[in-house]
Simulated assay, not measured.
Amino acid sequence: MPDATDAEGLTVGQVSSRLAVTVRALHHWDEIGLARPSLRTPAGYRLYTATDLERLHRIVVYRELGLGLGLDRIRAVLDDPAADVTGALRAQRAQVDERIDRLRQLGAGLDRMIDAHEHGLLLTAAQQAAIFGPEWNPDWSARARERYGGTPQWLRYAERSATRTPEEWQAVADTVTGFERALGEAMDAGVAPGDPEANALVERHREVFAAYFPLTRQMQVCLGRKVESDPGFAAHYDGVRAGLAAWFRRIIDASARAHGIDPDSATWH
């Protein structure tokens, strides 16, 4: 604010330093008539009086509070004695409250995203057991984080997990269960690798798996190997139908060959 030392006026540089406003802004405000200096030196340099500083200070306050008032609106508030300053400020206060609510929601979303990146599933152990069945081990998500946490696939998985509700996870689990049932029924019906029905199931598998992250055909081949070779995966699929793990890998490999992919050299990409 101005003081007794300002009686003869302050230069643009002095005002800029005092109010933490750029010289360019002061020149602009002068040019548009928002805050013009009352004095000039004989050489034509701007000089701001104590009254000028008071107006500048009010402009800075309105601008830096982030009230959403444009320069034209600020001019109207300052120049119109009949302006409803309180009403304008209340309206801006309502907008600030809305912005705060949005930021709080954003903060909560970021917290969930952080938790999803660090833990994977944002479900309690009881929720996981209810959704994925009694065989589900809540530690599997932490193990997956340790092994795959730095991969793009984990990133996609975490992004989906951060926004997914328990009901949505239940829908995912139901879809997977339905797909595995269809696999078992196809194998029972004598569907052979390379048959149209088998190829359709391979495509369906990629669609179902997209609930976790996008699965390329090369990645699907690698996953098929793991289904057959990993004791845990194999036990799960063979629990649906005896021999299903090996049959599932064979239909994936046959579909891959039809798309020009050599299953023996496929890599995770």
Rank of each mutant, 00 (worst) to 15 (best):
D3P: 03
D3G: 11
D6Y: 09
V15N: 08
S16M: 01
S17Q: 14
S17W: 14
T22L: 07
E31Q: 13
Y48V: 05
R55G: 06
R55E: 01
L69E: 06
R73K: 03
R75I: 01
R75A: 12
V77C: 05
L78H: 11
Q95Y: 04
D101F: 05
D101A: 13
Q105I: 10
G107D: 13
H119S: 00
G120L: 12
L121Y: 09
L123N: 05
A129V: 01
F132E: 10
F132S: 03
W136D: 01
D139H: 08
T151L: 07
P152E: 15
T165D: 02
E167N: 06
A171P: 00
G178W: 10
F179C: 01
L183W: 09
G190D: 00
G190K: 12
G194T: 10
A200R: 11
L201G: 08
A211M: 05
Y212F: 12
T216H: 05
R217Y: 15
G224N: 12
R225E: 12
V227Y: 14
P231M: 03
G232Q: 14
A234W: 02
G239V: 10
L244A: 15
R249C: 02
I252Q: 04
D253K: 14
A256W: 14
A258F: 08
D264R: 10
H269S: 15
